[in-house]
Design a protein around this nucleic acid. Structure first.
Lengths: 74, 74
DNA sequence: TGAGAATGTAAAGGAAGCTTTACAAAAGAT
DNA sequence: ATCTTTTGTAAAGCTTCCTTTACATTCTCA
């Protein structure tokens, strides 16, 4: 799932470390999320969205479950 | 975190089993989420929201981090 | 009241999210 | 080019999410 965390963080002129402190996670967690290593928990997604004053949907892009794709054959 | 999954599911006249199949998780996962045993992953929260045609924020109620509460003293 | 359907719950295991520590690499500013 | 800041990444370990299997409880309704 794609996200705009890095973009929004940089808009505020913050580095990963200060942002991590602000949302109370480790800097590695911020790095991992920004680089798509894994998704945040729902709880953390809310915390991030609140921090930026946005909705989760404005920050995290969910891949829609393709009913027309070749996969998903059952 | 509170959620309206059970309410929305019942609005559609579905039982946990059929709902679980529709969103491709086990029935126990549905039960656990409805009863607040744990929160869904962000991915699953999106799947559930999409299924109901709602936003995550309309379904899952995040407890706002109380800046004015007695806790959180740093 | 008793049978079938729906839901709750528990145990055990795998997968994903998050942590700390530590070091390497990249980017910025002289 | 060198120094400093920022970011990437890896390992090990803990917690949370999700699974399958299985059984207990509650609900519905004939």
């Amino acid at each position: 799932m794609e996200n705009r965390v890095e973009e929004l963080r940089k808009n505020l002129g913050m580095n990963q470390e200060d942002f991590a402190k602000a949302i109370r996670v480790s800097r590695q967690t911020v790095s991992s999320i920004e680089n798509g290593k894994y998704n945040p928990s729902l709880e953390l997604a809310f915390t991030i969205a609140d921090f930026f004053g946005k909705t989760i949907e404005e920050i995290f892009m969910h891949e829609r479950r393709g009913r027309n794709e070749k996969e998903l054959s059952d």
